[in-house]
Design a protein around this nucleic acid. Structure first.
Lengths: 301, 301
DNA sequence: GGGTCTCGATAGGTGACGCCTATCGATATC
DNA sequence: GATATCGATAGGCGTCACCTATCGAGACCC
């Protein structure tokens, strides 16, 4: 049994006439006769009483019509839904973003994304790199924004923009008097985020060390870290996009004497079929941040 | 797009694996790969993300699954319903019966019919011959029980039993003293049913006349007629199966000197596809009435 | 790190079947 | 009785779903 057969069944039942039903179906009358006959054989039920003025649906046929109609309607639902899903730049797009980037980047790019990709429903998800990659591989995210460089054979991605690090100092800190700060100068009293944040490792590496002040001071969020710096507990490196938040917290920012920073990439599964969507999202973000990267690079120079 | 394609779609989505889904569908893995690929082309949507450990349904695919499931379920509903309707001796059977027969025959045959054809839901419909034939031709009845002999090219039927006529007399009527009554003796004061009842014409014909007592006395039902006879307004001919009711009304019954009666037939449309059901119903009625016809014939003789 | 296994895609061949046109037989209509 | 209509049948044809065999990519494992 076939969807086509059911369509034929419905047509003949509606027109009560093989010829007209055939015309409605766009086939010849013999075709319809044969197919209905086969359907009757398959079902083991006589569907129409022929020979009178009309081809009258039998009682059995009438009992089947509702099911047949439901099947045809559902099948058309498949086609209609598929048509509405056809645009790869439409639908839900779950984007993972690391916590040291999300609060500062998303407000900048939400507007441009909505404007450039109006049918794409962006659903941000904030988590640390490892968790994001796990969810990405589990098909629970469509793409992620990362600040690390590692590659994997099952993933691919493109860099979007370079984000400089800035020295964050309490106003009364001796280094605050300088125009620019050397990373190694921060090493003495640098505060870092807790384990799992990629920014933690990057800040430590920039300062040329692998341990920082006591674990008790490890902040679990960048906001906490900024507040701790503002309170005079130490210094830190913050990503450039967080500059506004840092200044709001009463922190002095200084560029580093040699440019240091991280590169933000968008990453997706190698087999991800909606690659155009991921690339489009990345493109919008990169375009929005293009001017920013150049200006901060100029400031740091 | 095809029901088969939707079944394949559901299978792959469920197993998240082409090979296992193919085994579940009873086809080879290449078949499934090709068909899914074609379905993706038709829908314009990528359904599965291949290449990882599993063939993961895409977001678009998941949105289509409900529709696909509904279509497949409805199609299976068609098959299941058809299976339950396959027995031609099952289902609703609308049987038209003339009013001078129905009240006396149906109580006799209901039991045997239910016993012999337990899956047949008998739905009686009582009306006069012309109305019954109209409904029969309009497919609103499956068969009718008639007492007339006319045939039509679009109808067919078989005789079931012969029903004798009996003279119905008021107890004080002069003819009540005789063993048997001649039809012509009844002619003087015979009462008949109103227009449209076949029994009216048959009674008049048996008496060799075309008009009866004044139109005002024409009864619209056999029960009324019997009550009028019992009240002494005149005589009449009644069909044998109504004998019990007539005696209950206090009427004297006498056989006719020469056998006279009507033949009850079951009639259906020539193209009626459930002919076996009609024949089976007729057969049960005929068998139930076989002894009856012989015994009354003996009585009359 | 090269052999092995698994998975899905591809190639080529085959049979089934849905479709067509032409025609028939039956029935209704004039 | 001639004509028109309706559904069934016959014969031919092209598509397509299916198969087996094979490939290429990726994971796994001594």
């Amino acid at each position: 049994m076939n969807l086509r057969d059911l369509r034929y069944l419905l047509a003949v039942a509606e027109h009560e006439h093989f010829g007209r039903a055939a015309r409605a179906c766009g086939v010849s009358q013999p075709t319809l006769s044969v197919q209905i006959r086969k359907l009757e054989d398959v079902l083991g039920v006589v569907l129409f009483e022929r020979g009178g003025k009309v081809a009258a649906p039998t009682a059995a046929c009438r009992q089947l019509l509702d099911h047949a109609r439901a099947a045809v309607t559902a099948a058309e639902g498949v086609l209609a839904t598929a048509r509405s899903l056809r645009d790869p730049l439409a639908g839900r797009f779950r984007l993972g973003v690391i916590p040291t980037l999300a609060p500062y980047l998303l407000p900048l790019v939400f507007g441009p994304l909505r404007e450039a990709l109006p049918s794409l429903e962006l659903e941000p998800w904030e988590d640390q790199t490892a968790a994001l990659l796990e969810r990405l591989r589990a098909h629970e995210l469509d793409a992620v924004l990362l600040a690390t460089d590692e590659t994997a054979p099952d993933l691919m991605g493109v860099p979007l923009f370079a984000e400089p690090f800035l020295a964050a100092l309490p106003p009364e800190h001796p280094l605050a008097a300088r125009e620019a700060v050397a990373e190694t100068d921060l090493a003495r009293d640098i505060l870092v985020l807790s384990d799992g944040h990629c920014l933690r490792d990057q800040a430590l590496e920039a300062c040329g060390q692998t341990t920082a002040l006591g674990a008790a001071l490890r902040a679990s969020s960048l906001t906490t870290l900024l507040n701790m710096v503002a309170a005079g507990y130490g210094t830190t490196l913050i990503p450039g996009l967080a500059a506004g938040a840092a200044q709001d917290a009463g922190i002095v920012l200084r560029p580093l004497t040699t440019w240091t920073g991280r590169t933000i990439r968008i990453v997706w599964r190698a087999h991800y079929p909606q690659r155009p969507a991921a690339e489009a999202v990345g493109e919008v973000i990169a375009r929005r941040l293009r001017g920013y990267t150049e200006s901060t690079a100029a400031t740091a120079a």
